[in-house]
Nucleic acid binder design. Structure first.
Length: 649
RNA sequence: GCCGUUGUAGCUCAGUGGUAGAGCACUUCCUUGGUAAGGAAGAGGUCACGGGUUCAAAUCCCGUCAACGGCUCCA
């Protein structure tokens, strides 16, 4: 151990230390402050305990709260602290897993039927902090599998034993802090004293190992911080995010509603929401016409045999809405869960030539799917929704080019609406579970290659997920987050070599032979409902001018100017400006306040002066008075802003 | 579907065994006003629904439905 080792630090400097030096000691040599804040150490790219000796030359980064790995380590250790607290409060409970997550951590526990709810949160938090103040060290101990099994058999924890079964002897470690010992690969923070603030967020059920055949454990979600102030800030941030929740804003801005009588997951679009939705539809319709799409319309139901042919009946029939029947003949029809089978039938209405391809059929198609009741969520997960669907029928040699054109369209849509923060996900087959999918290996391989290449050529930053493909083909999804950080899929592009086979679609090639086209399913919004939900949360309800349900509110100072207010409104309406006149018997301050709360972009105040000059006093929401101007000047100002985003819709 | 929590006026919420409340919104009247809440009066609830316990249930118990937070699922 007396041999010197060379440690390379992130700034490129190299220092010599005695072999066996720890991250903590290196930190102490740099500054006392750093030593106080070191949570873990990255040694040659592997995160490990800051207290673990380093025995060879290495590149070392000392991790603090400001590093994602530091945070993860902090929260992982906090999960152990949570477990320790729970065990003290509820002796005899058993533990599943307790990982860090994006915001905090959780621990799955089997409370053996014991009750645990919000009233107990405070007690757990207090216990956690009480234990944290003891500055208990996290002690790492390599242990043989036999000893580990023995420990948990004595303790009576079936979940840990289940975990141990899949671990190899020689790789197993225990971590102990205070009276709590856990099977854990680590790493951990030096001691519990770093944890100064703790909050149990909520509890939820979670199946052991995520399998619904297994027992449901209680998942306790919590978050901790090195400073109380940071917890306060986090809670404040959460409060702010809740204000942007589309379910809240949807009600407040009168965009949509639900009715128990209509049914859960079946949104009712109110006039203002419909206005917004129609602007979006028109926006995409125009873009699609430019991109060579042909709009079509198909019925909301289709004969069962259509879905037998498509394969959807086999795959989803048993857990869908049941077929509806004709009264006399008993013929079965399905509420359409997809538009693609209908579009395939449109393809088949006449013989197609290679010259006709690509054929791009687009439809705002409303579909109905039986989503499990516990899954429904505002507008992001519903049972009836409208896809901005289109199916591109093309020759195999056109797949990649068409795919790239769709990527362009999706990016155009996202850019126009200010969606900067999205990620792209390529979903491929699960290589270990191929019977889940229909279609030949060869077709799948071709489709997967086409997607990967197209995404790469478009320079998309993508993550690839195995096993996330649709049952009929791989896909490229565009993912965004809602106000509370949950991830949702919006735009999607899917290659399908399968449906053309099932529907026996054909085209005649230049050699007069019959060929099979390839289908691309695509939806830039995904569904209008989900897209609008995310748009509401992204904008906080402050929609761009071209989308605002009400773009202006004409506010007469008093009844005397009502006629003039109506004249102003009519003149603007003729120039395609949307809004209303506030005729209520209220003072101007009140009318302004209400228009501001309704998030109307422009308020046009008219009184004696304006009437005399034929002007309007313009007030911009959130900004204030812009001064008095003629109606023509206002329209110019208005149109400049609308065309700024390129969307005179 | 599963686990947990919740359900009182259009909205936000008080009320924990003894005749259903507040603020905002709504209606009417007064007020005719200059850039974020003028005043007064009024109307509005089978306390989600269905059972049960009790002299008495919004309140306690059981069931159903729905919403919320997760899990599983998501063509």
């Amino acid at each position: 151990m007396s041999d010197q080792i060379r440690i390379t630090l992130p700034d490129g400097s190299v220092r010599e230390y005695p072999g066996g030096v720890t991250g903590l000691e290196i930190a102490a040599g740099i500054s006392e402050g750093l030593a106080r804040n070191v949570l873990a150490a990255s040694v040659n790219g592997t995160v490990q305990d800051a207290t673990r000796p380093i025995t060879t030359d290495a590149t070392v980064k000392l991790l603090t709260w400001n590093d994602p790995e530091g945070k993860a380590t902090f929260w992982h250790s906090s999960a152990h602290l949570l477990a320790e607290a729970l065990e003290e409060l509820y002796p005899g409970i058993q533990f599943g897993i307790g990982p860090p997550i994006e915001n905090g951590f959780y621990y799955d526990v089997d409370l053996n039927g014991r009750h645990f709810s919000q009233e107990d949160f405070k007690k757990v938090e207090d216990k956690m902090l009480e234990l944290a103040r003891k500055k208990q060290e996290f002690v790492r101990k390599p242990i043989s599998k036999a000893e580990a099994v023995d420990y948990f058999e004595k303790k009576g924890d079936p979940y840990k034993l289940d975990l141990l079964e899949r671990l190899d002897d020689g790789t197993i470690t225990f971590y102990t802090q205070g009276n709590f010992t856990d099977l854990c690969r680590g790493p951990h923070i030096p001691n519990t004293g770093f944890i100064k603030a703790a909050k149990v967020m909520n509890v939820a059920g979670a199946y052991w190992r995520g399998d619904e055949k297994n027992k449901m454990l209680t998942r306790v979600y919590a978050i901790t911080f090195p400073k109380q102030k940071e917890l306060d800030e986090y809670l404040h941030l959460l409060e702010e995010a809740k204000k942007r929740d589309h379910r809240k804003l949807g009600r407040e801005l009168e965009l949509f509603a639900f009715s128990e009588k209509v049914g859960q997951g079946l949104p009712l679009w109110l006039p203002k929401g419909t206005m917004l939705r129609e602007r979006l539809e028109n926006f995409l319709r125009r873009a699609q016409v430019r991109a060579g799409y042909s709009p079509v319309v198909t019925p909301h139901i289709g004969g069962k045999s259509l879905y037998v042919t498509s394969g959807h009946w086999e795959k989803y029939g048993k857990d869908s809405f049941k077929p509806i029947l004709t009264p006399e003949e008993g013929e079965e029809f399905l509420l359409k869960p997809m538009n693609c089978p209908h579009h395939c039938e449109i393809y088949k209405t006449k013989p197609r030539s290679y010259r006709d391809l690509p054929l791009r059929l687009a439809e705002f198609g409303t579909v109905y799917r039986y989503e499990q009741s516990g899954e429904l969520h505002g507008l992001t997960r519903v049972r009836g929704f409208t896809q901005d669907d289109a199916h591109i029928f093309c020759r195999p040699d056109q797949v990649k080019e068409e795919f790239m054109k769709v990527i362009d369209l999706v990016l155009y849509v996202f850019r126009s609406l200010g969606f900067e923060d999205f990620s792209a996900q390529i979903s491929l087959r699960d290589p270990e579970n191929r019977e889940k999918y229909i279609g030949s290996d060869d077709a799948w391989a071709k489709a997967e290659d086409a997607i990967v290449e197209a995404a790469a050529e478009k320079g998309l930053r993508t993550v690839t997920e195995l096993g996330e493909a649709a049952f009929y083909g791989p896909k490229l999804d565009f993912m965004v987050r809602d106000a509370l950080g949950r991830k949702w899929q919006l735009g999607t592009i899917q290659v399908d070599y399968n449906l053309p086979d099932r529907f026996e679609l054909e085209y005649t090639g230049s050699d007069n032979q019959k060929y099979r086209p390839v289908m691309i399913h695509r939806a830039p919004f995904g569904s209008l409902e989900r897209f609008i939900a995310i748009l509401i949360e992204n904008t906080g309800g402050n929609f761009p001018l071209w989308l605002s349900p009400d773009q202006i509110a004409v506010l007469p100072i008093s009844e005397k100017y009502e006629t003039y207010a109506n004249d102003v409104f009519l003149a603007l309406q003729e120039r395609d400006v949307r809004g209303y006149v506030d005729h209520r018997d209220e003072k101007i301050g009140r009318k302004i306040r209400d228009a501001e709360i309704s998030k109307v972009p422009f308020m046009l105040i008219v009184g004696e002066k304006e009437q005399a000059e034929g002007h309007v006093a313009v007030r911009r929401k959130g900004e204030g008075d812009l001064g008095s101007m003629s109606i023509d000047d206002f329209v110019e100002l208005f149109r400049a802003e609308v065309s700024q985003v390129g969307q005179a819709v």
